[in-house]
Design a protein around this nucleic acid. Structure first.
Lengths: 138, 138
DNA sequence: CTACAACTTCAAGTTGACTTGAAGGCAAGC
DNA sequence: GCTTGCCTTCAAGTCAACTTGAAGTTGTAG
């Protein structure tokens, strides 16, 4: 069983030690055990941080991450609460994907055609398509 | 030709007036003409703000938006510079899409199966898949 | 003339996710 | 015993993207 210091963990996952301390402070990581005052970690922290990173990349806030993944460890097993949050989040993710898709199209179009010193024209297109697909977001 | 006040524009696009002033301040919007000190807009501002919103939803910072869309209006027509930024951005968007996909899968899996009081196990899965698909991001 | 709503500018505050800095603790090497 | 390096805590700073507040201006309605 390896016992890593905070800076070793930081190096392994590509974070700063300060970020890991911060995660502990806000409850994303549980309080690490200490050896003469210093934090010691084993490999489970790597997995936990992998989940955190993925979730962040997908647009979750740290608060949401704590709720979704670490909010109710012992009490609730899978729970309705979790399911609801997850479902809502999946809808959000789908929306984000569409937005990104549409931005990608716009970039591609501007990249190839392009009478695009008039970004306003593209804006008109966006407005039209936004109206066309109904006003989905917000 | 309609001439809107700042709060009318704000209402139409779903922003606060303060946000529109801020956009002018940082150069996302060009300085609006004034009638006795007050800003007046026509419809082109709607298009511009539509582009801005879409870009934001796709994860662009205001700084990037200014560079990409409004950074070099008169000087460069479509320019290499633009193309490079756009290409880089498209790659980024693709990466974001994949991350979101993978998060979606994770949520779905946790939602349906689920021996998931051990989020760490899922973390192990993520780490494996991250290694599998080569360490793409950062 | 006064009141009022809607605007103006400018400075300072807010939120999320950290980082940086100060002041100090502990173990290893010389 | 002293220096060095890595660690600790706690408070304050940073950045983006705005928002809020204060103090003042303008045009209209009564």
């Amino acid at each position: 069983m390896p016992q890593w210091s905070i800076s070793e963990v930081a190096r392994r996952v590509g974070l700063r030690a300060s970020a890991i301390r911060y995660y502990e402070e806000i409850g994303i990581l549980e309080r690490a055990r200490r050896v003469s005052g210093q934090r010691r970690y084993d490999e489970t922290v790597l997995y936990r941080l992998a989940v955190v990173r993925r979730a962040q990349q997908a647009g979750f806030t740290l608060d949401e991450i704590r709720q979704l993944f670490f909010g109710f460890s012992q009490s609730t097993p899978v729970s309705q609460r979790w399911k609801k949050i997850a479902e809502r989040k999946i809808v959000e993710l789908d929306a984000r994907m569409e937005q990104i898709q549409s931005m990608r199209k716009l970039l591609k179009k501007l990249e190839t055609c392009c009478e695009c010193e008039t970004v306003e024209r593209c804006g008109a297109g966006i407005l039209r398509s936004a109206l066309a697909t109904s006003n989905a977001t917000q």
